[in-house]
Design a protein around this nucleic acid. Structure first.
Lengths: 219, 219
DNA sequence: GTAACGCTGTGACTGTTTTCACGGCTTAAT
DNA sequence: ATTAAGCCGTGAAAACAGTCACAGCGTTAC
């Protein structure tokens, strides 16, 4: 319980992840340093926000060179990443599942989707976009062998809870749920719900009554 | 500008949308009423949170019957929904785009994807999962004709900004961005960024250091 | 040398979101 | 009737998140 390693808030972790991907993917080749306001502009946040967030990484910038991109990325990675590559399971090999595989296939990241699962016999026991697909019955076995502790749920809503139960059973520690049904999981499992319906209804609501107020959100 | 209709905060709108979908899709058939703590349990929030959120809808529950589901749904809908059906455009007919169409096809909602767009000639001018797909060159025309003011961006990261510019040009007011690149849009456009990479990195981070702390997030 | 600049890191502040806690109401039971 | 119970609505407090503003420090210019 003694959380000697200072625990970083949810929101900050999200932005650190964003900063890193911006630095890796969108920084001009020839630039080695940048300032808080540069990163802020890229991430659509305030410069003060960037500086505050970076405090949590322990990285210290130079007052007039700014931040050294390489070092900063390394520093964020030391916080966000496992020392080794982090194995992730994907459940559901429909359109959404494949979209997700594409997402991660392209991007350098230490997150690696090492196995996909589906209960549709026609989809399993073959390679989908570079990822081996298994029947769900092998979930437990593979989660253990591959030391997977994070999973993405991309199945239809009515199957989601069942899948979640099996994931918890298999020893998964964190779940990203993309199905439109919220999940019940034990307290000690970290869960992020990402329901597109909800997000879209929000957009529609604020778009309609566009008081000239801008909103923006992540996670 | 006089916002006589009290503007409801972002977060609350999101939860109202969630409450409604829970009530519509997951309420037992024979039950007509429920209490704040019932809805709270379904939505994984506190009962006080539910009551506070519902204040914004104007609906008033009965101290010992609780909330009448039908009336409450109606009341939330009166806030979230357009009187008529709300037309939405989808940009990008890859795996992600199709997944989104499936999402909304199944669910009763007053959001309706009326047109999809793609710049891949092999994907356009045909019906994809019930939605007509057009080349992006027709964006402006169709947005105007169909009175669309909300769009979902589901294209690869490097195409996202270009698409966003065209959407703004065409008069769109709200954008849900699912591409892994944050967008620049004018202040008066409501934008929600929903980057799966970021979410997953967050899950992985908190799953790893699972101090027995639970986290949960939406939108 | 030294003055001016412009950035970082951070304490203090402001604003927002969530929780607490309690008065009031409505029903049911005695 | 009167009492007891239990939930709702909401003011007040607490927790959280983001912004402001400024001291301190390299760097550059003169």
């Amino acid at each position: 319980m003694a959380n000697h390693v200072r625990s970083i808030p949810d929101k900050v972790v999200g932005r650190l992840s964003l900063y890193r991907s911006l630095l890796q993917d969108h920084a001009p080749e020839n630039v080695t340093h940048l300032f808080s306001h540069d990163l802020a502009r890229m991430a659509r946040v305030s410069a003060a926000q960037v500086r505050r967030d970076l405090m949590d990484t322990g990285y210290i910038g130079s007052p007039n060179k700014g931040y050294e991109i390489k070092k900063l990325v390394g520093c964020i990675s030391r916080i966000l990443d496992n020392p080794e590559c982090e194995n992730v399971a994907l459940i559901g090999v429909g359109h959404l599942g494949r979209a997700i595989i594409d997402y991660f296939q392209g991007r350098r990241s230490n997150l690696c989707i090492v196995a996909a699962f589906d209960n549709n016999p026609s989809k399993v026991n073959r390679i989908v976009q570079g990822v081996k697909a298994y029947p769900i019955s092998q979930l437990q076995e593979i989660v253990e062998n591959e030391k997977i502790n994070t999973a993405i749920v991309a199945v239809p809503g009515n199957a989601a809870q069942g899948v979640a139960d099996q994931l918890v059973q298999a020893g998964i520690r964190g779940i990203l749920n993309l199905a439109p049904t919220p999940l019940y999981v034990p307290e000690n499992i970290y869960l992020v719900e990402q329901d597109m319906t909800m997000s879209l209804e929000k957009v529609a609501y604020f778009a309609r009554r566009s008081f000239n107020k801008k909103g923006s959100k992540n996670e």
